[in-house]
Structures are given as structure tokens and as C-alpha cells.
Write a protein that binds this DNA or RNA. Structure first.
Lengths: 241, 241
DNA sequence: GATTTTTCATTTGTCAGACATTTAATTGTC
DNA sequence: GACAATTAAATGTCTGACAAATGAAAAATC
């Protein structure tokens, strides 16, 4: 593709080779890679170069290393949490670095979130509805800082997407919700805007409870529109300063 | 200074420190990091350790390095393509390593994909509709291998999500579609199943053309159900073997 | 004989120093 | 002023060494 290999860059090449072995199933979860010395021999490079390659893979949570006899590099079992954390880091950076308008990011986030409404209304559990009501209670406390309000907001929406009872969907949606947090943290929430948001959160829970998909989607759409106006007022205030 | 954990792991610690500097905005896109020798001095470690830390960051596309005088490590501008490639790798591995049923993965994928239908019907362009029709033509060629058919399928769905005209949404959805490719590649597409899929693709394009959201969603729902039956027949065939 | 302790080999983590290669700025030459 | 050679700075790679961790085998002890 874009790898011209004018300068081979041995450690990157070796990392790519091992990554392919893992992604394409030639190395399975738990498998032990050859020792650094053996890998160096096999690829005809020094141990330092092999180590750089292994560190690249470790940064992607593809391998984990253990010290000592019978230690070494092992193909890592990628958990949902690790995967979500990685996805959130990448997405956060993407949003932060690309001069994306708050409106575009918000539109994407809520479009994605609406993809769970039908399944969530069908499968919501009492436990998750309880969790959502708990977060609503927390958000009603006026002494909450803006950061804490945002964090509770994230927890509320994560419970919402978990209602769909599909962990793959939860992974994708939770990652996109988390990635928005730095942008949301720019907003100063007044008592009035908090009340408005909490009302909409209540509408979402009530809608899920009644398995009323349409009302959940309406509440989410209203929430999206309201969040965008809040974001725009922040930008306007900044420009006018 | 020295944060002593159980096992310090210097290169990981240094990578974390620099990563925070980037994610939290103390280092901006394009900024040059100190040279490896300077970083080694600053952190009181050897150059090899610094290099391992930098390779970890490079693996996450957070930095890029340039050789020569006035070269060095620079904070990388994370592009949509890089971010999507990373997300797809992570998601693919997650799906491959967690004994996820084909049905659950498929359900998540199509739930996500439906999140673009309303925007796509509103904003679809002639160019993207043309691209989709082009892929449909390709898919109608019976001499196509299963892998090539899958690749064209991915291209078709990427054009579909691009219709929404929201690059953030495209990034998330394209990543999730790509992540499914290894699972889709397990399926052997008969002439009959290919015809069925192509028909549904045509229905999607026609629906977008007429800005008929409901018909696009119906076609996607049918495609989801059909894909799941195809996947299940593969699993059944395997079990019976 | 069973249990505890010691030794030992293996492997990763880190360091120091060296040389090769790349690259842009500088200098020298015409 | 244009072009070629030099130089300095930086990454890329190699070599060899030692430290630290760790499980297994061997030895010592009861």
C-alpha cells in the first residue's frame, strides 16, 4: 500500500510480520513467541532491533512479556476493556487533531448511539435501568462539578448502550461516547441546562421501561440538538472574548 | 520523578509520560520531541530504552520519526485513514479472540450501519451512488473469487456510510465494517447467495436514490438476516464434518 | 522418604559504546 | 549565482555486557 520500503526499517518490518502472524491466526492466543535471541537469529538482526519490534506489538496489546526462565513474549488475549481503551485513545486524538466541528462530532456520536435503541428497548434489564436512574440521581446534585457531571453522563450513556445486550455493539458505542468526553468537558453546564439534560435522561429511561422505541429516539434527538446548541454557545463565547 | 511501581519497566513509563503530554495537549501536532540522546539524559536512562519508548508511541501513530540533521521524533497528525486502520486491527483481533458468535457480531455491525441511513438518504451524492453501482457490477461477475467478492462488499458498504457526509461517522462505521471481513471471508458464496446479496445492494442504492429511508433500512435488515443464515450454515457444515 | 533450601539455566530489562546512514546546512569553487 | 564537497546532527543498527526475575532441578536437611 503506502510502504515503499525505500529504507526498510527493520524493526517495523519485523513487527509487521509478527502482527500478520497474529491477526491471520498463525499465532494463537497464549502462544509463546521465540525468545528475543532466537528471533534475532531468525531475522538476521540484533536483539535490540527485535526488542523494538516487540515493543511496537506490546503497545497495541498484541503481546505481553514475562521475565524469567520460561518467560518470553506471549500472544495476548485482547479483552473488551483493553480494546475499548485503545479505541477511545485513538478516537480522542482523531477528534482533537482534525479541527472537527463540535456539530459534526456530536451528530456522529448520536447517530451511532441511536443504533442501539431498538435492541435496548427489547432487552433492557432492571439492573441497567436501575444503574441509569442512579446516574440521573447523581446528576441532579447541584454541587457536582462539571467534570463529574460529564463523567456521570458518560456512565449513563454506557449503561444505555449496554441495554442492547450485545457486547460488540457496547464496545463500539462506548468507545465513541468516551472519545467525546474531552469535547463535552469544554461545556459549562448551568443549572438550567443540567435540568434540561436530566429531564431528557428521564425520558430515555421511561421510554426503555415502556419499550417505546420511538420515544427513546425522540429524546436522543432532542438531546443531540440541545447538546449542539450548548457547544455552539461555548464557541460563540470564546470567539467574542 | 522516578515513579516506582512493582516492576518499573522504564520504556513503558517513559512512553506513558510522553503519551500524556500529547493526549493532554502539552505537545501539539508537529512539535519536535528532544533528540533520543537528550531524552535519555532527561530521564536518566540509556538511548536504547528511550528508543523502545518511542517505538511504542510510533506503533500508535502518535509520533513519526525522520532521519538526518534536524530530524527526530515529531508529534504526528493522526489522519482518518491511520485511525481507521488502527481501529480495524483492534476490532478484528477482538472479534477473533473472544469466541463471539457470528450472530452477535453481525447484529452489532448492521445495527451500527443503520445509524447512517437517515443522513445518507439526505446527503447521498451522485458520485457515491455511482461508486456503489460500480461495486454492484463487480459483484455480478461470476468469476470473482470469494475474497474479491468480500472486498467489493466492504467497498460497497464503505461508500454507503460515506453517503452520510460525516467523516467522523464514516471513520467509526468503516472500522466496524472492516473488522468483520475475516468473519465474512469464512463464508463460501454460492451463485444463488451472491445474486440475493446483489439484489439487496441494488435495493439499497435505489432507496438512497429515492431518499426513501425506510426501504434502505428494510434492505439492510434483510441483508443482516440473510448474512446470519449464511454464517450459520457455515458453522453447521463445520460441525457436521 | 518428604520437605526445604540452594543452585542454576533461561529470558527479559537495561546500559554503554560504536559505526552506518540520512539529511540539511555550510562552505568552497568556478 | 550555481553547483559540488564537506560537515554536523540525528536516527538506525550492531555488539557485548550485566542485572533481575523466575521456574526447574539439584542438594541439603529433617
Amino acid at each position: 500500500m503506502k510502504n515503499q520500503t525505500a529504507t526498510p526499517n527493520l524493526s517495523a518490518t519485523i513487527a509487521d510480520a509478527i502482527r500478520s502472524d497474529i491477526v491471520e491466526g498463525r499465532l494463537l492466543v497464549g502462544d509463546r513467541l521465540p525468545s528475543e535471541a532466537e528471533l534475532a537469529d531468525q531475522h538476521g538482526v540484533s536483539r535490540a532491533t527485535v526488542r523494538e519490534a516487540l515493543k511496537r506489538l506490546a503497545a497495541q496489546s498484541l503481546i505481553r512479556t514475562e521475565r524469567g526462565a520460561f518467560g518470553g513474549a506471549f500472544v495476548n488475549h485482547l479483552s473488551y476493556d483493553e480494546a475499548r481503551a485503545q479505541q477511545a485513545t485513538t478516537s480522542t486524538l482523531l477528534l482533537g487533531m482534525n479541527a472537527i466541528s463540535f456539530q459534526v462530532a456530536c451528530e456522529a456520536r448520536y447517530a451511532l448511539e441511536r443504533s442501539c435503541t431498538a435492541l435496548a428497548a427489547e432487552r433492557r434489564t432492571a439492573a441497567l435501568l436501575g444503574k441509569m436512574r442512579e446516574e440521573i440521581d447523581r446528576q441532579s446534585d447541584p454541587s457536582l462539578t462539571d467534570e463529574a457531571f460529564c463523567a456521570s453522563d458518560v456512565a449513563f450513556h454506557r449503561a444505555l448502550v449496554d441495554c442492547a445486550g450485545n457486547e460488540v455493539l457496547s464496545y463500539h458505542l462506548a468507545g465513541s461516547v468516551e472519545a467525546m468526553q474531552p469535547l463535552m468537558n469544554m461545556i459549562t453546564f448551568t443549572a438550567r441546562s443540567r435540568a434540561e439534560i436530566v429531564d431528557l435522561h428521564r425520558a430515555i429511561v421511561a421510554g426503555l421501561d415502556r419499550r417505546d422505541v420511538a420515544s427513546v429516539e425522540r429524546a436522543l434527538a432532542t438531546l443531540e440538538a440541545y447538546t449542539i446548541t450548548l457547544g455552539q454557545s461555548v464557541l460563540k463565547a470564546r470567539a467574542g472574548r
